[in-house]
């Protein structure tokens, strides 16, 4: 069973990098470039981990966390927030809403790999 990860990120470059990296780590990676698309995806299928940027078009990262954690079906799905340095206030809000972890840009890709592995329950292949 391969773990499914959803990445929500509006910067093309970052999205591509994360997608490549996690796919290489052996996950099934789905992507969304904005919050609205992400919410649709989350409703339609279940994921083992969601990585989301905080500043997103249409629907912000905070709302994604609140939707995921507020729904009994998805509330156990771990959510990792991505944020720029300096948005600590918002990150704090995200934690209050139930976010599980956060990563500040710029970040170390190897570190990201490790964190993802920790949060995904099923081991990757």
């Amino acid at each position: 069973m391969i773990s499914k990860i959803l990445i929500v990120e509006d910067e093309v470059l970052m999205l591509k990098a994360l997608e490549f990296r996690l796919r290489k780590d052996g996950y099934e990676v789905h992507t969304a470039a904005d919050g609205a698309v992400a919410l649709d995806l989350i409703q339609a299928q279940s994921f083992d981990l969601i990585i989301t940027d905080i500043m997103l078009p249409f629907v912000g990262g905070l709302e994604i966390v609140s939707k995921v954690k507020g729904n009994p079906q998805t509330k156990d799905t771990p959510v990792i927030m991505l944020s720029a340095v300096g948005l600590e206030n918002i990150v704090l809000e995200a934690f209050q809403l139930g976010a599980d972890d956060f990563i500040t840009k710029p970040f170390n890709l190897s570190e990201l790999s490790i964190r993802v592995r920790k949060h995904v329950k099923q081991p990757s292949i």
Partner: peptide, 10 residues
């Protein structure tokens, strides 16, 4: 309202 809430500003 939702689109206003998701504007980029802190």
């Amino acid at each position: 309202v939702r689109s206003l809430l998701s504007l980029h500003y802190s």
